[in-house]
Nucleic acid binder design. Sequence first.
DNA 1: CGCTCGTTTGACTGGTGTCAAGCGCAGTGG
DNA 2: CCACTGCGCTTGACACCAGTCAAACGAGCG
Lengths: 249, 249
Amino acid sequence: MPSRANSPNSKSDASLKSGCGGCVLRELGLCSILIGAGLESPLDRPPLPQFEKTVAARLPLFRAEERFSNVPILCEGWAAIVAHLPNGRRQILSFLLPGDFISASLLFEETLHHAAETITPVCYRSFARAELRELLFAHPKILENVASACIREKQRLEDLAIDLGRRRADARLARLILSLRERMATRGRAPSRVFNFPLRQVHIADALGMTQVHVNRVIKRFHQNGLIDLQARSLRILNEKELQRLANK
Amino acid sequence: MPSRANSPNSKSDASLKSGCGGCVLRELGLCSILIGAGLESPLDRPPLPQFEKTVAARLPLFRAEERFSNVPILCEGWAAIVAHLPNGRRQILSFLLPGDFISASLLFEETLHHAAETITPVCYRSFARAELRELLFAHPKILENVASACIREKQRLEDLAIDLGRRRADARLARLILSLRERMATRGRAPSRVFNFPLRQVHIADALGMTQVHVNRVIKRFHQNGLIDLQARSLRILNEKELQRLANK
DNA sequence: CGCTCGTTTGACTGGTGTCAAGCGCAGTGG
DNA sequence: CCACTGCGCTTGACACCAGTCAAACGAGCG
């Protein structure tokens, strides 16, 4: 049972590429929405103006109620949307993976209602809302894509509510693991059995509405039962059948 | 402490009005989105074709995974979106009040992913998706309104997840009561201290991720502490200060 | 080499779930 | 007109999942 800590404050990360041209997401996922991949008619304008920013791991990314004149998209790294309660408790509402909007709502609203923070080092790009929206109207296909991104955000929240309301700790954890794996699998390829898993136990606790201590106990049980092997920020699924069974309980 | 039951199967209800012309929601709430109230330029077409349907209380309204070629809107009564788990448990994802879309997603998707059921007798109208969407593109203001309806749905889910993940039973109940009151208050008028409350304790339990038994205990405690008075499907708030305090805990 | 961050463990507590029985109102039908 | 029935609400005894508190450990870093 490993314990690991890693450098929380590296202010820039060598693995971050510097241009959208080299971006793995360019033809894929949500970024394609914006560069217009898959449009029947190619965009009649140069690429949208954008600015790019990099933030180190485990740092606040945006404040709750922060106002935006542009809409940010995660290009690299993991982040989380987290709600802070008056009593100091926290609830993670979603994990953000490369290609996700920070929040699709920012296309239509000025303010982000919850805080965001980085989990790994993160790179994001921001697009001017006004120009983005012109695009929306000009290209129905883009509106379509944005809508479906929005729907996906909603579905994840529904799933979260169902988990928190009606499932036990082990089912929640099993589902989190499987859904993250699903999301990480680049489109087309089958989800892999071992993958990068940068979450700390606190993140899991805050996402699943449990305490960090209890997360530890459940992970330990999974480990003892030969379900998973989690170390060095890498997760290996050993018994997928059983994990699926737990998840659907 | 009252016990009440009422007729669950009256197949039509005299209080239901028969035309949209007389609808209280016409100028208000989400229906206004569709008839184009508040547009800078009036709609250049006759009102959208629509059909209307009535369903009695406590009945299934739509099945999970049901496919729609049109998008339904609740005109009268209360309903709920409810997720059914393999083990028989249920989680209510949202309560639908007059003027709400059954789900805003249905504008962009064909299928409703969870079941819906009526709480009171219900009347809803359906609009052809295709025509609705033309309207979306023709009138930016309408798209704006639809988007904000969608955002509101998302925000409620976020609030639900926070409640389920990080709040105790009494805080959840206090928040449910206050938020329903808020939603029922017709726009502009202040929320009233006593209002119609058709939910059974099972509904509350399924919405708040608790058992019906425990809901009963919490309600009883609220009652004993002079916070609320709930009988004959009518809820009176006796100590709003304290209720607010609980809700923000 | 001491500090910090994340993890691990144990003992104990407590909020909710589970099971089960009973009650009361209201609609139904003989 | 009255027993019957069903639904929703109440209540009590008990069990258990998960929270709380507290201490210690291990790995990396300055």
